[in-house]
Design a protein around this nucleic acid. Sequence first.
RNA 1: GCGAUCGUAGCUCAGUUGGUUAGAGCACUGGAUUGUGAUUCCAGGGGUCGCCGGUUCGAGCCCGGUCAGCCACCCCA
Length: 443
Amino acid sequence: MIQSLPGFREFYPAECSLRNHIFRVWRGAVAAYGFVEYDTPLLEPLELFTEKSGDEIVSQLFNFEDKGGRAVALRPEMTPSLVRLVGARVNSLRRPIKWFSIGEQFRFERPQKGRLRSFYQFNADILGVEGPGADAEAIALLIHILCAFGFKAEDFQLRLSDRDLWMYYLEAWSIAEEDRIAVLGIIDKMARRDREETAKNLKPFLADAVDDFLSEVEGLVAIRSLAELEAFMQKARLQKRDLIEERLATWRELLATLSAMGLDPYFHIDLSIVRGLAYYTGFVFEAFEVSGESRALAGGGRYDTLMEKITGQALPALGFAMGDVTLIDLLSEKGLLPKYVEALDVYVVTSGEEPRNAALKDIAALRAQGVQVEYALKPAGFNKQFKQADQLGARYALIYGEEELARGEVTIRDCSKKASFACPHKDLGNVLKAILEEGYWPE
RNA sequence: GCGAUCGUAGCUCAGUUGGUUAGAGCACUGGAUUGUGAUUCCAGGGGUCGCCGGUUCGAGCCCGGUCAGCCACCCCA
């Protein structure tokens, strides 16, 4: 037997049902925020991804040459395609542009916990709006979605950070502009390295100031509140104080908005979040599960310069993405997976050729009305048919037997109450409608 | 790409120092059952013991390789 490829999942009915549940929650939550759905090709020119992320990205792509000799790749993320779509019509799209998508993404990397080679991702982006109001909207949506899945503030926390503030801070330490991304990369890994190694890695950028810098940064990433952050920035020996003051004013605005939205229990400041991507420019955030591994459930941030870099059209933007793999893991751990149940409106039990033909005619009519109906595809005994009805989760059984037919009746049985009554055949449609839609049941 | 660990039925697993034809529970199918779903009983299908090679008179078991799973590293859009 040929197996499926590593890192690719097969969706049996139970898994497909779960996937549908997740998509349903995503779509339901985002609809309340007025985002509209878009989609893009699964297969894109390779260049679309290398342009943004450099050639190193190719090692993590499913890429190949198509029969026309084009270098192509399965999409590893939505943002480049989104930027192309928006860029192409940037002057005719009403602002704010609030778009979301749900799509399969592909990354050629070693599968492990929470990471596969194919996965589904929810993306929501707001384009064309400066200022923290848009950031607050995206953050509120992210929290809303996680709550819609049943998670509580004890289960997850959104960690909020700021790439601008980091850049000003690094500038104040006289770190050259072209080195700042590299330094942030080291800071990102700080928690997973011992202090000596971090110091060694920082040495080329800070020379003798490494120890002072590192000590101060350790204080910075431990900050959890705005008051602490303001105090820190006051105390730190910083040039560019006006830029930092301006940034702190934006922080106050964002936090006041989130607070007014009632979201205080769900987030905290954590400057250790810097995100790997070079293109982030302002507030960045990640949602983490609180217990255990502290895995990231979603992440995003502002990318105000990316649009211009790729399309030549400047447009402020921000967004976040949430994958289904870690989400399912956490839903499972928290007992929040919906139970997989089969449900059916009506199962039709028949006996004999004549009743069966009468039943087939009625089944067609019921189905035409949208009633879910199943019946035994090959004749079987009553017992077997009732068993089948039970297994399919049928709410009601209709019994077409010789006796009923002779009296011009059909027996209607409530499978959960285990109660039946005889219904005149000619009234079946109306009576069944009353039962299914209004809960009617004769005494 | 590095390393650790693991692989027996659809699922969970048992399988003696290497010894005849590889087992159980659950699930599935049929029957007991041509008029009411549980339980029960009977029967059945389903396995290249991941794959390839080696050792041996003999391998599910020992050895090597490989593939896949899982975990960690690297990376993480």
